[in-house]
Design a protein around this nucleic acid. Structure first.
Length: 653
RNA sequence: GGGGACGUAGCUCAGCUGGAUAGAGCAUCUGCCUUCUAAGCAGAGGGUCGCAGGUUCGAGUCCUGCCGUCCCUACCA
């Protein structure tokens, strides 16, 4: 028998019950265990008697009784009892449960189902990152951490659209509005916060083009063409700008502990003819067709029936424009094919930079390199972390795979969607943003790069650190400055990451500065504080010349039975042991918010425990050992869970 | 017009495949720092789960209709 940690019980107990039902009644539906609302009802509950009662035409309570009698004793279970109209409440053996927690963590050995690719961040490299991008990166990075914590093999990709209109517009701005030469831009790009400069320039260019005449729009097209073809001054400047801004973005994300394995770039998708290859495939297998009449005459389009059951007959998505230029979706289909290893082509790579943790980031190039990069792409499942507004385009991409006959891969192309981050009216006012009357009446206001409307990621991080620093200085005026700054940074990042994770994905966040700057209540710092406190107890113990006992030697199953007979100890232990179950559930539902929620309730449990039991001053030896074990167990689980959330535990708080 | 998401406490949000008395945080109010740090703890008030039907032993959760909010519906990305 395996040891009965909660997650294990929750997954294996139903299997045993299910097997029994199959053998006894020929009943074949899945069996689920529930967690009763009231802890007094036990740890787990079966509601299967209700369904079974209907089939057997017996009273639910009678069926429940029959089940209890026939199931006999199950491992780790102390007793089962009937409650209410026919619930079967399950009480676990507390002594066995507690002592099983002393055994070292056993990593799940579930068969690795191939490589999982997670694509996230994907910021247009033409301006500074804003809070919306932070939500994307933090969600993606946390999901990656969740998957990796279960032993899965995960590759993180950050797609760089370095040849699109957004980069082109900034280049147009430098050339046309600013009359800058290549060398002048090169100097600017080497300066700090070049991304801020481009943020402002992009907003100005967008306003300019919005009000401009047609001849200027033609000129704008020329810049875009030059960049797509990869020749001319505009193209060179495009690379200069986008390469510099990518580095800005990586630096911003590194502040949050977000890193990547590989940066596939659009310029290589074009120059290495990924699209040309995909185009041939799509034509060959009739996934797209050439429109011969109507408004889309001369375009290669995908019929609406490929990507939507609801599509009208004339619905179609343009993949190649009548001027021969492929759309973004077309390039994305080629990219998605490559991710699954279905394109028959690969990028060349060169090392871009090495993170502070020694992690190597690679970027695509179009020329063979001497250095040997790992094998990228060829995943078995692909998660694209992209905001929900692009659901339609993601459907088209998956439909492309399906139309090519890659049904399984289309199924495994998962749009990990999330709602946008908007701004609260109050925060807009604080930022000095003038709102139109229609915006003023709304609950939140959309950020807009074109309007330069938004909160820059680095500004927010700076502000958070500043605020945290005030609190740290207040509490630890004697500590070295560098140390206080490091602590303030950990707290600020913890607050930010937690804030981005506490909402479920399809909730629109109305970003409010005041709310985001809070360090109390359901926040990252609250959880960090619990972890710090647990460490403090153990540190204080050492300062007193004591050390942690050998728990396995001191705490027998009987000892656990005695201590866990106390109801609050039992409830706390249960709560702490549910970390794996929480992560498993969060992966199944695709909701990192569930892990955040668990971390918070875990911290709440610890703070209650901390308040109620002075661990170090306990005089009863067995109880003291137990309390120390609880403290240490809390600490480990808090640290593990925070690690999954990408939140560091500060030295002190 | 078509497609999608949402509507839960004053505010911001959870609510796991339909289960037992609908939960947090913030805000408001009342207590608790000579104790392992009060970024904390204990407690109080606050709900026709948008409205109306339906399915079910059981509905915040599933179905239908209505009302309201938001997003998408480009030869932009």
């Amino acid at each position: 028998m395996n040891f009965p940690v909660f997650h294990h019980i929750q997954t294996h107990l139903p299997e045993q019950v299910s097997a029994h039902l199959q053998a006894r009644y020929g009943y074949d539906a899945p069996v689920w265990l529930e967690q009763p609302a009231d802890p007094a009802f036990g740890e787990l509950a079966l509601t299967i008697a209700f369904q079974l009662a209907k089939q057997l035409k017996k009273a639910p309570r009678a069926v429940a009784q029959e089940l209890i009698d026939e199931l006999g004793s199950l491992p780790g279970v102390a007793q089962m009892e009937i409650a209410g109209p026919g619930y079967i409440n399950i009480r676990l053996d507390r002594g066995v449960y507690g002592s099983s927690l002393l055994k070292p963590d056993e990593r799940s050995t579930e068969a690795a189902a191939g490589k999982i690719i997670v694509e996230h961040t994907n910021i247009n490299p033409n301006k500074a990152a804003h809070i919306g991008h932070l939500r994307n990166a933090v969600l993606g990075d946390t999901f990656v951490r969740m998957l990796r914590s279960t032993g899965a093999q995960v590759e993180v990709q950050n797609y760089i659209d370095n040849t699109g209109v957004q980069v082109a517009d900034v280049v147009a701005g430098f050339l046309k509005l600013e009359n800058k030469s290549l060398d002048e831009v090169r100097v600017l790009a080497a300066q700090p916060r070049f991304d801020y400069l481009c943020w402002d320039l992009y907003a100005r260019v967008s306003q300019h083009f919005a009000a401009s005449k047609d001849d200027e729009k033609n000129w704008r097209q020329e810049v875009l063409h030059s960049i797509e073809e990869g020749s001319g001054v505009a193209s060179e400047m495009g690379h200069l700008v986008s390469d510099a801004i990518v580095l800005c973005h990586l630096a911003t994300m590194a502040r949050l502990g977000v890193s990547y394995d590989v940066l596939p770039r659009e310029s290589e998708i074009l120059h290495l003819k990924f699209w040309a290859t995909a185009f041939e495939l799509l034509k060959e297998r009739n996934a797209i067709h050439l429109e011969t009449e109507g408004p889309k005459k001369g375009c290669w389009v995908m019929a609406g029936s490929h990507y939507s059951d609801e599509a009208a007959e004339d619905d179609s998505k343009v993949i190649v424009r009548s001027n021969g230029i492929v759309t973004y979706v077309g390039k994305d289909i080629a990219y998605q094919l490559w991710k699954f290893g279905l394109l028959g082509k690969d990028f060349h790579y060169h090392p871009l930079l090495t993170g502070s943790n020694g992690h190597q980031v690679w970027v695509s190039t179009d020329h063979p390199q001497s250095s040997s990069a790992p094998k990228f792409g060829g995943g078995s499942t692909v998660y694209n972390v992209i905001d929900s507004r692009q659901a339609y385009l993601q459907d088209v991409v998956a439909a492309g795979l399906r139309a090519l006959g890659y049904i399984d891969q289309a199924e495994r192309s998962i749009h990990f969607s999330y709602e946008m981050v908007a701004l609260s009216p109050r925060t807009c006012a604080e930022l000095g943003i003038d709102l139109s009357d229609s915006d003023k009446s709304k609950a939140h206001v959309q950020v807009s790069g074109r309007k330069g409307l938004g909160v820059k990621a680095d500004d927010l991080i700076d502000k958070l650190i500043e605020k945290a620093r005030v609190e740290v200085d207040d509490r630890h005026p004697q500590a070295p400055v560098a140390e206080r700054q490091a602590v303030a940074t950990d707290i600020a990042i913890g607050a930010l990451r937690y804030f981005m994770l506490k909402f479920t994905r399809n909730t629109v966040i109305a970003f409010d500065m005041q709310e985001a700057l809070s360090f109390e209540g359901e926040t990252g710092p609250y959880v960090q504080y619990a972890a710090v406190r647990s460490r403090n107890i153990l540190r204080k113990l050492e300062e007193r010349g004591e050390k942690l006992p050998d728990f396995a030697a001191v705490l027998s199953s009987d000892a656990f039975g005695r201590q866990l007979a106390q109801e609050d100890f039992w409830q706390l232990t249960l709560a702490v042991s549910k970390a794996d179950a929480a992560v498993a559930r969060a992966i199944a539902s695709g909701e990192p918010a569930h892990v955040a929620k668990y971390a918070f309730t875990l911290a709440q449990s610890f703070n209650t425990f901390y308040h109620d039991y002075p661990v170090i001053h306990e005089t009863d030896p067995e109880k003291k050992s137990f309390l120390l074990w609880m403290t240490d167990y809390f600490r480990r689980q808090l640290e593990r869970t925070l690690d999954v959330l990408g939140i560091r535990v500060p030295q002190y708080m």
